[in-house]
């Protein structure tokens, strides 16, 4: 078993669209993932969460996520900026980041990998597809790959 595949490890979803949040929650439910899904509404909130600022000051309100699902197009600070900040920061860069977005533009894909994203996924249109994608994602990141543990 994977060193980080703790039963209650947290997945952070950064997503501004309430419908997409709802959709992701349903997909998680449907795929019966045991991981806890935490949701923030935009890039700024994501950084506040990761750095435990503002409303996320108490460690219990913002447990360090094992995986970040990041939308690209968001108001204020968008996904690209968030990704850049995470990968710049030695304390955060080990957290795998998966882009989950509607954009399948080559430019966005290339730019994301250049910034050090770990995976890039286009949101499937159909519900079944979305559920399957979430399952595959969980299986891959929490069962297959070996990631550095939380040794620090």
């Amino acid at each position: 078993m994977n060193a980080i595949a703790g039963k209650n490890s947290v997945i952070l979803l950064v997503e501004d669209d309430p419908d997409d949040q709802e959709l992701t929650k349903r997909a998680f439910r449907a795929s019966r993932l045991r991981n806890e899904l935490r949701i923030v509404n935009d890039g700024e909130e994501a950084l506040d969460y990761l750095y435990r600022r503002g409303p996320f000051e108490s460690p219990s309100s913002a447990p360090r996520p094992s995986l970040i699902l990041l939308d690209l197009n968001m108001p204020k600070l968008d996904g690209r900026a968030v990704l850049e900040r995470i990968k710049e920061d030695p304390a955060l860069r080990r957290i795998p980041v998966v882009i989950l977005t509607t954009s399948s533009q080559e430019e966005d894909v290339i730019r994301s990998y250049e910034l050090g994203v770990n995976s890039y996924m286009a949101k499937p249109n159909r519900m079944d597809g979305f559920v399957q994608a979430i399952r595959d994602l969980e299986h891959y990141w929490f069962n297959l790959v070996i990631l550095p543990g939380r040794f620090s």
Partner: peptide, 14 residues
């Protein structure tokens, strides 16, 4: 324009 369309499709499934 894709965004609401996608929602229509996804939530019709739901």
């Amino acid at each position: 324009l894709q965004e609401p369309l996608r929602k229509l499709v996804s939530f019709t499934d739901a």
